[in-house]
């Protein structure tokens, strides 16, 4: 106990010698504030400014457009399919990776990360090569009258591809840090796998899981490159919100384009807020865990 107090005092004393001078501090804080202001805050502000420039009624009238309404509907529909798929995958892969040791684990982790580093355009291209008219399965699909490209299944596939690491990536480090002691105790007491998962693991990871799902959802609703390749840009049928924003923008309907963009921006801000909450809760949980 006395040792701990003495240690702390040295650190507090030492902080003077191991910290920058107040001037340097102020300059660095100013540089970062300016950089973030220019690159992060201003783009956010400009979206809302452009959307509301012509008043609230102009803003609201952007959503009267049936094509825009359909784009919102399609985006929600795609997310409702893609996000649960990736959530189940995220839970399964995080369980496999963090609860067991097996050869090839680093390879599997790298493969799960892969879609993050591949150009979204390639995420669309691979499905065109597979399901397109001249693709590997194109002839068979035409014979059986199944539409994948330029239709909902293609958009869902491309979206799922681009967003599939997010839940897994959020959960793996969290579950690794938490360890498996509680789960193993439950197993020794005779709980079944499903019981352990539902009663022990889910309560431990719920905030990290929630953030992963929300981030996955934000990315799914905002995906542009991959969806643009497979959608065919058919108005009122295969345009998602980001594609609709592109069309409106290219037609110089700036207010309408930015109005749709505000919805996605609000979603992005909500995502950041939930991440903030999730990190705070996870830190508290870890601290509580190490104390007990």
């Amino acid at each position: 106990m006395a040792g701990a107090i003495a240690m702390r005092r040295v650190v507090v004393k030492g902080r003077r010698a191991t910290a920058e001078s107040p001037t340097v501090r102020r300059i660095l804080i100013a540089v970062v504030t300016l950089f973030f202001g220019l690159f992060l805050v201003m783009p956010l502000v400009v979206v809302f400014h452009e959307a509301f420039k012509r008043g609230l009624s102009a803003y609201l009238s952007a959503f009267q457009d049936p094509y825009t309404q359909h784009a919102v509907y399609l985006t929600l529909l795609v997310a409702v399919i893609a996000v649960p798929l990736n959530t189940i995958f995220g839970l399964a892969s995080a369980w496999a990776i963090t609860k067991f040791s097996f050869p090839g684990k680093p390879l599997l982790t790298s493969l799960i990360d892969l879609p993050l580093w591949i150009s979204p355009v390639i995420g669309g291209l691979i499905y065109v090569l597979l399901f397109g008219r001249h693709g590997w399965l194109g002839g068979w699909l035409i014979d059986h009258d199944i539409r994948i490209l330029f239709a909902l299944p293609g958009i869902v596939l491309a979206t799922t591809f681009v967003t599939f690491p997010f839940v897994a990536r959020g959960l793996i480090p969290l579950m690794q840090a938490q360890g498996s002691a509680e789960e193993e105790a439950a197993a020794t007491l005779g709980a079944s796998g499903w019981q352990i998962f539902r009663r022990v693991t889910i309560p431990k990871i719920k905030w990290g899981l929630l953030y992963g799902v929300i981030l996955c959802n934000a990315r799914a609703m905002g995906e542009f490159g991959a969806v643009s390749v497979v959608s065919g840009h058919i108005r009122g049928r295969t345009n998602t919100m980001p594609l609709q924003i592109e069309i409106l923008y290219n037609e110089y309907q700036f207010s309408a384009a930015f109005a749709v963009a505000t919805l996605l921006c609000a979603l992005a801000l909500l995502t950041l807020f939930l991440k903030f909450i999730a990190e705070w809760r996870a830190a508290r949980q870890l601290a509580a865990g190490s104390r007990s």
Partner: peptide
């Protein structure tokens, strides 16, 4: 500080098309 810290992930959460039109306008 907390606001800047939370905003760091904005490019990760903001759709690329929205970032594109916002930067072009700015």
């Amino acid at each position: 500080r907390r606001v800047l810290d939370a905003l760091t992930d904005l490019p990760f959460a903001m759709p690329t098309a929205v970032a594109g039109i916002a930067l072009t306008s700015l």
